[in-house]
Write a protein that binds this DNA or RNA. Structure first.
Lengths: 366, 366
DNA sequence: CCAGTCCGCGGTAACGATCCCAGCGATGGA
DNA sequence: TCCATCGCTGGGATCGTTACCGCGGACTGG
């Protein structure tokens, strides 16, 4: 009696125990081909008794499918990606897929390596929020190998066959800016990771090839324009993706542009930095300044004033990306699906009608 | 010239192009055995030209190693797990491993299925924050199959061979409670997910088999005791893991126990709920009540008063777990490693000396 | 009663790598 | 000169599964 001891029990063990060939055992377990009811029961019983578990690797060698999707994102501890990955993960489970996760720290080299490893592991598809919009050869080679690719919230124009699922950043900005305009604001600043673009470069057709930050900036400019308000690059406060940097940018903006009555922050970190700046400067919001943040973070209702924000559907974005990826895998012919999800405005206490003109904003300087 | 078209290029293609056998090609690429410098260069050139990428599945069939670890957690969008997974992920990369992620929504059934799938995919090890402390048969069977297991922050006494990496919850509570005691507090409430234990059940030896919530409660009780303060179950406000629930629990506590001068929240959500309750009740902190939170969340410095917290090293916890898992894989004989990481007290503005006795806490009731 | 189907089953070839072993020429020492 | 050794190479076996083909027997219809 050759017992496989602690080693894994294979289909041959099951077949032997059930007294059939491995072919029959395979059919009985995978429920295909034709097997008599009697042997099917016998085989399944044998499998049960031995604690048989199919080796997916061997299966994948034959079938060419691993039932695994790769997910490549810059930072899993970022709540946006955390929620997106949760969406991907739950949707993947529903579709009987698993998730191979790579957090690349925003490093293009690590991203390339991650993609390469995923290809080696023969994932059926990849969902990626690429570091770069242009430097995407590794993604193109992925396509060449027949691996489905879905871009998450960041475009990559060169990757022709990839589907693309993103938040409607332009629309999200419109929600924010229009809300401020409706309240009567005219001098509206913006805190953004992007650098200010000259007003003659505001081109709506670019929306689908821009990364989130420039896209939101574009949406801001377009919303102003369609309200008949001049887009002024001087009101664009550029900042790195860091709270302290955003804080400093807001200070500079408010100092150099005292006419500003409202500020729109295009990012969760930037929102936090801006909010901190207001507190440190002793600026009353919304009395002296209206503030609108991005992403409905868990502190938005904890601070005073409670923060008005544009919420983005990150969980749903993840779900949609996975569904889209699977659709791409099933039908590779249909290419370049582009799906876009809307943001939502949540009005709280940090936005209000602007202070009466003539009334100056006082900042308590340390 | 049989070109593999869009299909994947195998080592045989490389061998043919280089004019050698597949064995030689394999040696040249994997850099083992002995190959002449000339053929090595030729093979590597051929591989380069064809864009050869080794099929990891086939390799794993032979070697028995997949260079993949499974990670099973209840909720990836929870910042604690987000940070832990980032730690796992970066450490994994350093060790040339990949991460197969399962988010189980805290459902034991999904956890079981996830573990089973991971076993089928032949992961080399599993890091898991199990849903249940007792219901761990699926983990035991994992061990039986020779898969290394490391428990993340939640014990599972029955899983004999698993290593265990956790925050020192008892110690973390001590930091919080001792800080309050040092300030002069004597009537200290606690908000916890655990249910109040009778004072005769406070047993320090239980620390290593308790889940985070009860462990923190135990630490609270022990810290009080060693300061000569009676542990009073009436001061324990139990709450579900939800902000609204915590908020309600705090209200009940403050109403029924007006003598309380400080509250320790044992969890990030509970901290948020407690903070919200204070704001809604119009209670001045730290003037009327000292508050100490758990987890250094990004809003801790945004709210007023800025929140004193016990920080837990979630990123480092993930790193440690992965290192520990690898150690377990390398040396399976050495069992039941138990590593514990300390929390850190960050004193901010929400804790201060208690109000003078006789001075009542006023709550602005709606 | 015979021929044609169809069901159930077993044998064997894949999948793409690694691993083991044997062959073979060159080299070196006796 | 001959044998042992060593470096390099190729040919298979192998991992565990699925895919494919063919065979025997039962069943059916004419």
């Amino acid at each position: 009696m050759a017992r496989p001891a602690s080693q894994s029990v294979t289909i041959i063990d099951v077949a032997e125990r059930a007294g059939v060939s491995k072919s029959t055992a395979a059919r009985a377990l995978a429920n295909y081909g034709s097997v008599s009811e009697k042997t099917r029961v016998a085989v399944q019983a044998a499998a049960e008794e031995l604690g048989y578990q199919a080796n997916t690797l061997a299966r994948s060698m034959i079938t060419g499918r691993t039932m695994t999707v790769g997910v490549v994102i810059p930072d899993i501890s970022n709540p946006f990606f955390g929620n997106a990955v949760r969406g991907i993960s739950t949707a993947a489970r529903e579709e009987h897929y698993d998730v191979l996760l790579s957090s690349t720290e925003g490093d293009i080299g690590l991203e390339r390596r991650a993609v390469s490893v995923l290809a080696g592991k023969k994932v059926d598809g990849v969902i990626i929020a690429p570091v770069s919009t242009e430097d995407t050869e590794h993604l193109e080679s992925l396509e060449a190998k027949g691996v489905a690719v879905t871009l998450l919230d960041r475009p990559a124009p060169k990757v022709a066959a990839a589907s693309y699922v993103a938040v409607d950043h332009v629309g999200a900005s419109s929600l924010a800016v229009n809300h401020l305009i409706d309240l009567g604001h005219r001098e509206i600043g913006i805190v953004t990771e992007a650098s200010a673009m000259p007003s003659d470069q505001i081109d709506p057709t670019l929306a689908s090839v821009l990364r989130p930050a420039p896209a939101r900036l574009l949406g801001y400019a377009m919303a102003l324009r369609s309200a008949g308000i001049r887009y002024d690059p001087a009101l664009v406060a550029s900042s790195a993706y860091a709270r302290a940097s955003a804080s400093a940018a807001v200070r500079r903006l408010l100092e150099s542009q005292p006419q500003v009555t409202a500020v729109y922050c295009t990012d969760s970190e930037l929102s936090a930095g801006a909010f901190a700046a207001l507190q440190e400067l002793g600026i009353d919001s919304p009395g002296q300044l209206s503030l609108i943040g991005f992403d409905d973070q868990d502190w938005a209702t904890l601070v005073r004033p409670r923060l008005t924000v544009v919420e983005q559907p990150s969980y749903q974005l993840g779900r949609t990306a996975l569904k889209e990826l699977i659709a791409t895998m099933v039908n590779p012919a249909e290419r370049r699906q582009h799906r876009t999800l809307r943001g939502r405005l949540i009005v709280r206490d940090s936005t209000a009608r602007p202070r009466k003109s003539g009334e100056e904003r006082r900042t308590a300087t340390l």
